[in-house]
Design a binder for these strands. Structure first.
Lengths: 133, 133
DNA sequence: TTAAATAGGACTATTTTGGTCTTATTTTAT
DNA sequence: ATAAAATAAGACCAAAATAGTCCTATTTAA
């Protein structure tokens, strides 16, 4: 389980929106506030749309909002929206990816670690994160 | 914290050596037994040498052995020998890698997860792993 | 109808990964 | 001595992933 820069940007973006609920926020504003390249951020927001995390309003005065309450969005959810499922070792996602085809004594450890990490990331929601300073 | 194929190969390799202590094992043998490309494995063994995990004997009848007892080699050690320090998010390794420079409410979470995962990987040693089947 | 915003697809440069290949050097056995 | 079999080390390379940009719609408020 590692977080690409893209996913990191996505997290910042959702965090900013969580701190600015109740209004529509433009890509430009988020980009400036969170130091994310604007056109890249636009792409990232499309992923977050597909995942149902944000909703968009087109046209002038358009922009983005969270599609759910901050407390109902977990870190894990945002990361997976960008990267898909991930783990410390691919074999923990799909046994077939291992040429030892899971007959390996190390395999259960990757599965265990994956579970632990996902648990932790699921616990963290954006209401919590937006409140901290 | 994610494990590249190279590190995964390294783990298999150390595991094989842990199951075959008390003799010198050639790259060729390990390569065949563990399904790792031979010339790539040779490189990997150089890394494990530098890290003091294996020792080599040159010349005909040469090969590799573990440089320490299996119980004193952890999974974490092998992974770091190949990949260097790693974490779910680079900012957990070096705050400066984050453009928000650690003034970010998510940062402590990455640090926490890194600690948890490293703890787990440190607990796992190759005496344990070689015994399982 | 224009300006400012998102939508979406094509494209691209850089870095990382996952190797190979070649040329030493070492050591044992003949 | 020398041939054979092993590691040592460095250069090299291809493919995939990452980290974006750019351009052309389309939408909508003023």
């Amino acid at each position: 389980m590692y977080v690409t820069r893209k996913a990191d940007y996505a997290i910042r973006c959702v965090l900013y929106l969580a701190k600015n609920t109740g209004r529509i926020t433009s890509v430009d504003e988020i980009s400036n506030a969170m130091y994310v390249p604007k056109s890249f951020l636009a792409k990232i927001l499309q992923c977050l749309m597909k995942a149902g995390i944000v909703s968009s309003t087109r046209g002038i005065k358009g922009g983005f909002q969270l599609a759910k309450e901050p407390k109902d969005i977990s870190l894990l959810e945002v990361i997976e929206a960008i990267q898909g499922p991930s783990a410390a070792n691919i074999c923990a996602i799909d046994k077939r990816m291992c040429s030892l085809s899971g007959r390996c004594t190390v395999h259960p450890i990757w599965v265990k670690i994956r579970k632990k990490v996902e648990q932790e990331l699921k616990k963290q929601n954006f209401a919590k994160l937006a409140k901290k300073r």
